[in-house]
Each structure stands twice: as structure tokens, then as C-alpha cells.
Design a binder for these strands. Structure first.
Lengths: 206, 206
DNA sequence: AAAATATACGGACTTGAGTCCGTTTAAGTC
DNA sequence: GACTTAAACGGACTCAAGTCCGTATATTTT
């Protein structure tokens, strides 16, 4: 997550102010690792790939891997970064109801549907990013972002405890939970979406 | 969880039918392990105790530990068994609104409050039982029980998607989530209870 | 009560995550 | 373009979870 910030900083020289640049070899290695990880995950499946595998495939030491990404969930988060920011821009500046302009309850429902689709589309990676360590999910930068968005909408909707309701909605959309619904209970994505939309609307009601 | 069944079977000879009994040494070792684990967890804290520690303290091999409890979360579940069944009997045969007799929405709200209190009271053990392995929480016997209870109430309340709403409520009451609210955000148990009760009532509304 | 059998025992072993620290190297400095 | 130094490198190391299997023992059979 911090690395996303770092890379943006590199891309926008005007912002690179007093903060030290990432060294060239560091940047090169980050790309090597991400490429290798993506390839291995696609080929063998996320569950079958160890951090040693990634390091070896990237031609990089394990220490480098961990220095760059913190832990396994950090690596997953870095890989998800791009897909995630699509959703983020759709929320911040896309057309309603996902983007600004629609009533809060509609926007929340649209968010829930879109986020569910995102989690479902990247189930294994999101699982990894949320469960690599205990409580990993709640410490994610992206989690804070979604949580903040939902809380804003719920506040605008005028319901009590907007923060807690936001957490509740996101807790229901955990990768683990979505996997359970989809794989263990064989629910279709449309059915699930309808249910989740209904729940969002309930939560956005006083 | 299977061991809970096994022990009940031993206590009720009439039910011991064709199913093979647990061997005497096995039963003895189970007690030794549970006693040792409880002591270690109380003394050092759940996080600081390894399975080797438990095995050593119980004077038992690691294999025995794992044969008996499956994995770390199984051990935690076994330790929680007693506290859990108090809540279960209160639900099944205690006074309303937790027990039978009250309207479904009231019972669901009472359950949410009681379950939150239970999770809060045994945070570390419940965390362990829910997060030792990926998806552990959803495979727990007790989870199925709570889920079933909530789904029944939501069905009685006449809302759509009772199963999914039940999962949503329980997802919000994950040990990880409760820890986050209580420790990271310093919410008081009463405030949290009020919020969770309100959410339950929302979910029990068409 | 001896033999047969099913079950349980226990600790060495494997595997993978994450850490540590001596070595290397990029990037400014003279 | 040699020099300095802060940052990065990498792989050996630690630590804990979970598995495996030869050995021991409770139970059942004769």
C-alpha cells in the first residue's frame, strides 16, 4: 500500500518534494517481484505459491521481498492495487449511482454491488490480502478507504452509528464470506448481489 | 467439536449405541491437554503459547494433541465449549427475549447482544477458534448453530434472504471485528451493544 | 489369561513465514 | 572519476504449525 504511494510519487516529479526517492535497483526489483508473483499465481494458483517461490522466480532474495512488501498480504495488496483503483475512481468521479450525484442509499447499494463483484472477481488474491495475518483486513489502506466512503454515505443518510454500520457491511463482504456463499453454498452472483443490495438499503435506513 | 459430541456420548450410556467408545487413555489425555492449555493461556496469554508448549505442559506428544483436536482452532473451540453451551441453552430454553416466546426481531436483537458479550468476554480464544486457518470460522460447528438460529428467526420475521442476513449479522460479530471496535476504536461494550441491536432490528425488517 | 486387533501414542520431520545481519551497490560529494 | 554513506541486497536462520509412522497399549476375542 505504501508502495503504491511511492510509485505515484515517482510518476509525478512535482510531488517528489523532500521525501527520498526509491533507489533504482529497488524499483527494478519491485517490478520483477510483481511480474513473477502474478505469473506464479496465475499458473499455480495463489494457495500453491510460497514466498520462497516468488523470491526465486523473481531472482531476488527473500529479504528484498519482505522489505518491499512487508508480508504476504502486502504482496497481494500490491497486485490488487490497479484493479482496486478502477473501483475507487468510479466511486469518486464516475457516473451515479456509484459515483457522486445519487441519493446516499442508492450510492451505498451501488457500492455494495460493485465491491462484491470486485471481491468475487479476485477472490484468491483478496483472501490473501485479508487473511495473511490476524486482523490484516482491518489494517489495509484500502479497507480504510472503503470504510470511510460507506461511513460518509451512511452519515449523509442520517442513520445512527454510521461507522459501525459501514464496518458491518464490509464485514459481510469479506473474501472469506463471499467464497463461502459462492463456493460452499453455490449462490449465483446476481442472487447474492440482490441480497447484498437489499441489506445495504436496510442499513441505510433509520 | 466432534469431541464435545463424544464426551456427551460417554456421559449418557444409553446413547452409546453402536458407535465405538473413546479409549480410556485418550479421554485422560484430552483432559490433561485441556487443563494444561487453559492454564497456559491464562498465564501467558493465548498469543504467546505454541502447540508445542501445550503438548509439553500436558506431558503429551504433539501427535496426540493434533489427533484429538485437529488443529489450534479446534483446541480453542474445545475450551470454549462450556461457555458456549450456556448461551445455547439460554437461547433454546431460557426466558425471552433470548429464549423462545418473544417476537423474532426481539429475539434476534437479544441474540446479537448476548453473542457480542460472549465474544467480547473471550476475545482471544474466539479469535483463535475463528482464525487459526483460512475460513475456520465458517466451518465451526457452533457457527452453523448460531447461523441456523438467526436464519430461523429471520425467516419467522418474514424478510427476504434470511440465510444471507444471518451470515451478515455473524460476520459483523467476528472476533476480529469486535476486537477492532473495542481495542482499536475504544468503543464501550454498551455503545457497541446498542449499535448491534439496532442493526439486528434493521436486518429483521422487510 | 493369552493372543489378536484396533486404537492411541509421541517425537522426529517437513514446510513455510518472517527476521537478521554481513555484504554489496546506487547516488550524491569533492 | 575516486570517495562516502545511506539504502538495498540475499540467503542462512529461527520459530511454529501440522504430518507421519514405528512403537506401545487398551480392548476384544477365544
Amino acid at each position: 500500500m505504501n508502495d503504491a504511494v511511492a510509485s505515484h510519487r515517482r510518476d509525478l516529479p512535482l510531488l517528489s518534494g523532500g521525501v527520498p526517492q526509491e533507489r533504482a535497483d529497488a524499483a527494478r526489483n519491485r517490478m520483477k517481484v510483481l511480474a513473477a508473483a502474478e505469473r506464479l499465481f496465475d499458473t499455480l494458483g495463489v494457495a500453491a505459491v510460497s514466498m520462497d517461490d516468488v523470491a526465486a522466480a523473481a531472482g531476488v532474495g527473500k529479504g528484498t521481498l519482505y522489505r518491499r512488501f512487508g508480508d504476504k498480504s502486502g504482496l497481494a495488496a500490491a497486485l490488487l492495487d490497479e484493479r482496486e483503483s478502477e473501483l475507487q475512481t468510479a466511486i469518486l468521479s464516475g457516473p451515479p449511482p456509484l459515483g457522486p450525484g445519487a441519493p446516499p442509499a442508492d450510492r451505498l447499494a451501488a457500492f455494495a454491488a460493485a465491491y462484491l463483484a470486485y471481491v468475487d472477481a479476485h477472490l484468491d488474491l483478496v483472501t490473501l490480502s485479508q487473511t495473511a495475518s490476524a486482523g490484516a483486513r482491518l489494517r489495509t489502506g484500502s479497507h480504510r478507504l472503503w470504510q470511510h466512503h460507506c461511513a460518509i454515505l451512511l452519515t449523509a443518510a442520517g442513520v445512527p452509528d454510521p461507522q459501525i454500520r459501514a464496518d458491518t457491511l464490509l464485514a459481510a463482504l469479506t473474501a472469506e464470506q463471499v467464497r463461502h456463499w459462492r463456493r460452499d453454498e453455490n449462490r449465483s452472483l446476481p442472487d447474492l448481489t440482490a441480497a447484498v443490495v437489499a441489506i445495504s438499503r436496510r442499513l441505510a435506513t433509520v
